[in-house]
Amino acid sequence: MSELEIWLTIIALACATAATRSSFWVIGEHVPIPTRVQGMLRYAPSCALAAIIGPDLLLDPAGAVDLGLHNYKLIAGIAAAAYYLLRKSMLETIIFGMLAFTALRLLLPAA
């Protein structure tokens, strides 16, 4: 791509962000959403978050499901979730999870 084309692409990406994120903020008054649908949408944010972390925790770089002991992210992720349930602190959970991940990576011999 030429320099100009790359900048046009970047502007296109900004438009894609605006068209989706600002969508109902801008046109919402004209498009009423049925209560039943609103009720279902309540579950969207937690489902989206789960859909983002699921593949990161379970898939290896080649895209295959990895439930083995060498999947450090999965082990550290489960440990971090348990830590959160105990301590209810997100910051501590992030630190604990990163320490667990790094410890596993450095201490466990490679597969």
Binding site: A12, R21, F24, Q38, L41, R42, A48
Partner: peptide, 25 residues
């Protein structure tokens, strides 16, 4: 092509339409 990148970004961002429908009202 630029329109392919645009459409891809649009599809990747579609969940934000749901978020907007939730939050905007």
């Amino acid at each position: 092509p630029i329109w392919v990148v645009f459409l891809t970004a649009l599809v990747v961002n579609l969940r934000f339409v749901i978020f907007a429908a939730l939050l905007a009202p």
